[in-house]
Amino acid sequence: MSSLRSHDRELITQHSALITMLSDVERAEIEEELLHYPDKQAGCVEALKVVQRHRGWVSDESLKSVAALLGMTSEELDSVATFYNLIFRKPVGRHVIFLCDSISCWVCGYDIMRKGLQNRLGISMGETTPDGRFTLLPIVCLGACDRAPTMMVDDDLHEDLTTEKVDRVLEQYP
């Protein structure tokens, strides 16, 4: 260490400061995922998802911290993060509603569900309710086409939707 120039030492300090912005639990969960791959970059999607699970989304600061931990530049990591529609680089509501807009659900009444949800929540697709409770997003086929129309709220799948059922489901997510 003693041979390092002060500039390098400063970089290392910054680097460690970035990493310590992640909680111990987050770091432990990320380290666990990294054991599955021969290099750290391969764990980057799982790492971003760990942060998102704990914080709801991936802020610029979180992204920099994860990049530092994985030995990637934040630009490199962001180019991967922004490829995926399920990594949120902007804040979302407490609950995220994913309404399936693919073909079987569309044939079986997707439009009615969309209008119902938009009216009920007073927002359009891609928006968050002013109270921060729900974000409404479209999603591709959820692999439950025989029970169309379908949606996911957070991690839960809801099938055979009707407008009444949608109303009942929303109540389960305060």
Binding site: T82, N85, R89, K90, D101, D111, R114, S124, P138
Partner: peptide
């Protein structure tokens, strides 16, 4: 499913 509503909207932010 008729053409009475816009089926286009901003896709997810990322």
């Amino acid at each position: 499913n008729g053409a009475d509503g816009a089926r286009t909207w901003p896709v997810s932010s990322s």
